[in-house]
Amino acid sequence: MKLAIISDIHANLPALEEVLNGIDSQKVNTIYCLGDLVNQNVWNNEVVELIRKRKISTIKGNHDAGIGEGKHFFPFSYTSTEAKQWGKEAIEYTLSHITEDNRNFLSALPMRLRLKITGKDGTSFTMVLTHGTPKGINERMYHFSPKKDFAELLKLADADMLIMGNTHAPYHHIIPVEENGNVIKRHVLNPGSIGKPKDGDWRPSYVLLTIDSNKSLLTDPEAVQVDFYRIKYDLGKAVKAIKNSGLPVYYGGCLITG
């Protein structure tokens, strides 16, 4: 079984299209999206409609929640007073362009998904997908966060694999968790961002999970394979669209620097 995980598209249609082309060539069984479909680029409706057309199972991101509820400001990361103001301008742009139908779609997205896969030996493997963390949609776990914090979230989610977005930077950690006197290896991962990477690489990032249910999903290290991919796309088209839209050019610069 192959599962593709994408996240944080932020209205960047050219990036999403190229990533979906790449995923399609890998013949995956299912695609899941961790949210933040909209805001900070120009193709808000087009991205939502492509996700809907492809019937990609999607959870709600903090930007989806804010735009879906028609809020003129909502919490997200910013590095300065100027960036906060640019963020408000981006929200106003998105609210003025998104259709009511697409806004209602965003508002109705679930907060998390829980997937359970059962191996042939009877063992089950539970994956929990959330945008922020199990504690909240605006929470962030970075690759350098303490391992004990990851372990706490795994326990809170009651998951063998916890998949989170929101930081726009990919990572995968294997966390040893003690259960009934035994040490079990659990997974935490972030697929990175499709539309607005923040790890110094402008190329969109996604993750492919290959799960072999013929093996013991909890004890065999080869039963669950995690592979990250980066895809090139027409970056110039996305930057030019921002420049010509009235959105703050700051967001075009963010795309270039990653």
Rank of each mutant, 00 (worst) to 15 (best):
residue 129 L to H: 03
residue 136 G to L: 01
residue 126 T to F: 01
residue 139 E to D: 15
residue 125 F to H: 07
residue 153 L to T: 04
residue 110 P to N: 01
residue 135 K to E: 15
residue 118 T to W: 00
residue 140 R to H: 14
residue 109 L to N: 03
residue 146 P to I: 00
residue 149 D to T: 15
residue 150 F to Q: 06
residue 133 T to P: 06
residue 103 R to Y: 11
residue 97 H to Y: 09
residue 96 S to R: 10
residue 131 H to F: 01
residue 99 T to G: 15
residue 125 F to K: 00
residue 100 E to M: 08
residue 107 S to Q: 13
residue 136 G to R: 01
residue 109 L to F: 05
residue 112 R to P: 13
residue 123 T to C: 06
residue 105 F to P: 01
residue 102 N to L: 07
residue 109 L to H: 05
residue 112 R to F: 15
residue 142 Y to L: 09
residue 133 T to F: 04
residue 112 R to V: 02
residue 101 D to L: 06
residue 138 N to R: 09
residue 123 T to I: 04
residue 121 D to W: 12
residue 129 L to E: 03
residue 115 L to N: 02
residue 114 R to K: 13
residue 144 F to Y: 14
residue 138 N to Q: 13
residue 114 R to N: 10
residue 112 R to H: 15
residue 102 N to Y: 09
residue 117 I to Q: 07
residue 132 G to C: 04
residue 101 D to V: 08
residue 106 L to K: 11
residue 146 P to E: 05
residue 150 F to Y: 15
residue 113 L to T: 03
residue 153 L to I: 03
residue 107 S to L: 08
residue 152 E to C: 07
residue 112 R to E: 15
residue 126 T to W: 00
residue 102 N to H: 11
residue 148 K to I: 13
residue 137 I to T: 11
residue 152 E to D: 15
residue 145 S to I: 02
residue 104 N to S: 12
residue 111 M to F: 15
residue 136 G to I: 01
residue 142 Y to D: 12
residue 143 H to N: 08
residue 97 H to P: 10
residue 130 T to K: 09
residue 143 H to T: 06
residue 144 F to L: 02
residue 128 V to T: 03
residue 134 P to H: 03
residue 105 F to C: 00
residue 118 T to D: 03
residue 150 F to K: 04
residue 120 K to A: 06
residue 115 L to C: 04
residue 107 S to E: 14
residue 125 F to G: 02
residue 108 A to W: 09
residue 98 I to D: 06
residue 128 V to C: 00
residue 114 R to V: 11
residue 101 D to T: 13
residue 113 L to A: 05
residue 123 T to K: 08
residue 151 A to S: 13
residue 129 L to K: 00
residue 122 G to D: 12
residue 145 S to R: 04
residue 120 K to D: 14
residue 106 L to V: 07
residue 130 T to C: 15
